[in-house]
């Protein structure tokens, strides 16, 4: 498994903005590593307000969707909130085809995402 970080984290007025750094969230080892980093935000760091920024993401697989669903469940169980933003058109279509836009909060841009808190 790679030691490269999959995410970049910034605190914006009490909200954790998580920027995904990989263009392609496809292969299994990358997805597993990404999942561990994302879950640690809730389970280890105790963060409860998280924005996930997808600006650079060009591809993602159904396994990556699974990690997002699990993260959202973890956040809800911890009474926190997860917001996704800056999703490219092709990726947004994947969320709509799978109907995940119904259970995940998705915003067009970062400002709109921060306004959710």
């Amino acid at each position: 498994m790679s030691n490269d970080r999959k995410i970049d984290i910034e605190d914006v007025n009490g909200v954790t903005v998580v920027r995904l750094l990989e263009k392609k969230i496809l292969d299994e080892s990358n997805i597993e590593a990404l999942g561990q980093e994302l879950f640690a935000l809730v389970d280890v760091d105790g963060r409860r307000k998280v924005v996930l920024e997808f600006k650079v993401v060009e591809y993602l697989s159904s396994a990556a969707l699974g990690k997002l669903i699990t993260l959202n469940q973890k956040m809800s169980a911890a009474k926190g909130k997860l917001v996704l933003c800056c999703i490219q058109k092709e990726i947004l279509e994947v969320f709509m085809i799978t109907q995940l836009h119904r259970i995940l909060t998705i915003c067009d841009d970062l400002d709109q995402a921060l306004d959710q808190f």
């Binding site: 669903i69 995940l100 119904r102």
Partner: peptide
Amino acid sequence: FIERPGGRGVML
């Protein structure tokens, strides 16, 4: 089924 982490590959 929508909250299940898997099971979307074939549908996609």
